[in-house]
Simulated assay, not measured.
Amino acid sequence: MKEIREIFYDKQLNIEAYGFYGLKQKFPNHFHDHYVIGCIESGIRKVTCRGEEFLIEPGDLLFFNYRENHACEQVGDYPLNCRFINIKRERMREIAEEITGKSGYPEFVRPVIRQCPKAELLREVYRMVAEGKEEFEKEEHFYLLMEQLLSEYAVFEKRGVQVPDTEKLNDVCDYIKEHYSENVSLEQLCGIAGVSRYSLIRYFTKYKKITPYQYLESIRINQAKLYLEEGMEPAEAAAMTGFSDQSHFTNFFKRLFGLTPAQYQRIFIQKIDKTPL
């Protein structure tokens, strides 16, 4: 297998994402000036960290704290495939403060979490960064991932976080309804609610039983249905309702309704054709 190494920097999230595919290289004892969080896709490696040895396998989640010494080497004939995100120390402090309300640096308690269900969400964040996906959805997934990782695997003291009131959350809903066709950002919605990104995601979801981004896409898709029923071309309906491209629109539409936009539209075109003159 040919070795491939890739790295991406996301300005919006202020993180790095990098992947190793077909990796056989041995890494001596070293540390990084950032936090490292990764998931193992295939292959087995021996990792030495905190005076212990761990065999990491597919499905495992890996944590290295800021400047934490570690080393790793290949085990067996199968090279390593893995994906990681790097978070600088000050950026991690900002994230932890938004989520927990405490200004400090978290410490992940265990270097390895076996068969961690959070690995799938990490893969999704990595994919969005690598593909340059829409900022709102990507931010939401990232904060949901970090909330789970920090709450379950990190140590720090907690104190109260900002909580938006119902009126502010309704203002957010109204803004989304009025501006769904535009490039709505999480930052804009946080400004309306007067809270942090994490607080908005958490309390909006608790209040509406749906995340802010899912709410936005639901508004968009329902308006697009009306346009399709009126005979508008699917590509134009996608553009008019704020979808980044027609492929995203088609995939999302089919996932929700089981039909492509064109298939859905034909139902109404047939009805129109059968209407007597």
Results as ranks from 00 to 15, higher is better:
Leu228Tyr: 11
Lys177Val: 10
Lys133Tyr: 11
Asp10Ile: 07
Val109Gly: 09
Glu6Leu: 04
Thr100Ser: 10
Leu150Pro: 03
Gln214Gly: 08
Asp165Pro: 01
Lys274Met: 15
Gln214Arg: 05
Val161Asp: 03
Val125Asp: 00
Tyr9Ala: 06
Ile210Gln: 09
Thr260Glu: 15
Thr241Gln: 10
Lys102Gln: 11
Val155Arg: 02
Asn29Phe: 00
Leu259Glu: 04
Arg83Cys: 01
His141Trp: 00
Lys24Cys: 06
Glu107Phe: 13
Asn170Ile: 04
Asp77His: 03
Ser185Arg: 09
Tyr21Trp: 15
Val112Met: 07
Leu61Gly: 13
Phe63Lys: 08
Val36Ile: 09
Gly242Arg: 10
Leu200Glu: 15
Asp33Arg: 03
Met146Gln: 04
Phe64Gly: 11
Leu169Gly: 02
Tyr35Leu: 14
Tyr203Ser: 11
Gly59Glu: 08
Val195Glu: 06
Asp77Phe: 01
Thr241Asp: 05
Met240Tyr: 11
Pro276Thr: 03
Arg5Asp: 13
Arg127Gln: 02
Ile113Met: 14
Gly104Leu: 15
Phe64Gln: 12
Phe20Arg: 15
His34Lys: 11
Val75Leu: 01
Ala224Trp: 13
Gly242Asn: 09
Arg114Met: 10
Thr260Asp: 10
Glu131Thr: 02
Cys116Met: 07
Leu186Phe: 06
Arg67Lys: 12
Glu134Val: 09
Gly51Met: 04
Glu236Leu: 13
Lys177Asp: 13
Tyr198Arg: 05
His248Gln: 04
Asp171Tyr: 04
Phe108Trp: 06
Pro106Leu: 02
Gln246Trp: 08
Gly194Lys: 08
Gly38Asn: 06
Glu73Cys: 01
Tyr143Thr: 00
Asp245Val: 05
Thr211Lys: 06
Tyr264His: 06
Ser181Glu: 15
Met232Leu: 15
Tyr105Cys: 02
Glu182Asn: 11
Lys168His: 04
Asp245Ser: 09
Met240His: 07
Lys274His: 08
His32Glu: 08
Glu131Phe: 01
Gly51Gln: 06
Tyr66Asn: 09
Arg83Ile: 02
Arg5Val: 14
Ile192Lys: 14
Phe64Tyr: 14
Ile85Lys: 13
